[in-house]
Amino acid sequence: MKKKQILLAEDDDLLASLLNYRLEKEGYDVVLKNDGKEVKNWLDGTLPDIIVSDIMMPYFSGIELVDYIRNNLKSTVPIILISSASNEENVLSAFKMGANDFISKPVSPSELLVRVSREISRIS
């Protein structure tokens, strides 16, 4: 059975590594990217099954990424956003742009797993 591919966009190496480890352990194929520019370039070539992205990233923020995916790539791929700034404005604008879910830092890896699997089961 083909593994579900997750694009993990997170600029914090430690957290990225931790989440990567947890998601891989759970059986997902994780593509790890550290900044928005990398993510954008990678997305021009291919589309994952689900995207988990931090909102605050260098070069290209999570909200801009959602906007790019929804309006430029015209893709409905599920997007889960992670942000340390859990203010209402960020959440609202993310959902307005078309994000599917939102999780705030400090992240519980177990919770993230549940959300990821829920989104994947929804599309499948």
Partner: peptide, 12 residues
């Protein structure tokens, strides 16, 4: 210490 700031729940 850095990780403690970013994780919660059972991982913490």
């Amino acid at each position: 210490f850095d990780l403690q700031k970013d994780v919660s729940g059972t991982t913490e």
